[in-house]
Amino acid sequence: MDRGKYAKYVMLGPAVVVTLAASLYPMYFALVTSFRDWRLSRSLVPQDFVGFDNYVRAFQDERFLNSFIVTIKYIVISVSMSIVLGLLMALLLQRKNWLNTITKTLMILPFAVSPALRGFSWKFMLNPQYGAFDKIVDTVFPFMADINWLADPLWALIMLAITEVWGWSPLVALMFIGGLGTINPEITEAASLDGANEWQVFWRITLPLLSPIILLVTLLRIIFSLKIFDQIVTMTGGGPGDATQALNYFVYLNGFKFFDFGYASALGYLLLILMLIAAFFYVRSLLGGNES
């Protein structure tokens, strides 16, 4: 019995060591680097410790502040759209029939598409000369025909969010369908018998009962939205101007384009702090849900 116990730790050991080495060590190294001056163009190895200079610089750097604001705007647009759309899709697809079953199976496909490919595809679709999306919008909403989607700061950000929503909404919908399935139909039936209309049932009963899942999905989406990168590279390059230069992309620019690893590490840690805050609430709500 004891031997069996020991064996499982031995078997797990190498994987745990590799995992820790591959995650904790880079984090430790990046933390140390964030307090050092390391511009690769000057030296191949990290240079002097500079205390909190890199962090102070971030808060004095207008480009960082811009990327922070862009990220917040992006999160608000992307998360709210995917929650609303996901919920609508879930309400439409919650009834069990063969058509819904097939639809739900197919819905996972957009999520399976790689973000970079999503970006390239949408860039083509949004092209004002030959893009399918652009042509459809021009036909259905002629008053929007003059919009150059990726050349307008607001529309470029919205379109970036839409690529993410396109991939995530079906998954969010599936999560909501799962949540809707846990609501006891007797509650909604009782409300209907008491004279509540469908809107009142949804607003007063379904939505409050779904709120723990909405919270979880929101936090999960915030964490993933903070990581937006691939579509920026493939669709906008951070433009027009710097209107879609989100935080993650800004970190990349400083590290791999400007070779300033000290500053990029500090920016990476600021991004990590934002993610940890979201992750803290996510885990807390997850565990809280289990306890209840």
Binding site: D2, K5, Y6, Y9, V10, G13, V16, V17, L20, A21, L24, Y25, Y28, F29, L44, V45, P46
Partner: peptide, 24 residues
């Protein structure tokens, strides 16, 4: 035995980190 394993594990991890922290 778990304690022993934990000690070996910690030692291995420590060695790995130390090795990685060597001046480049």
């Amino acid at each position: 035995k778990i304690k022993k394993f934990a000690s070996i594990f910690a030692l291995l991890t420590g060695l790995l980190v130390l090795a990685a922290c060597q001046p480049q």
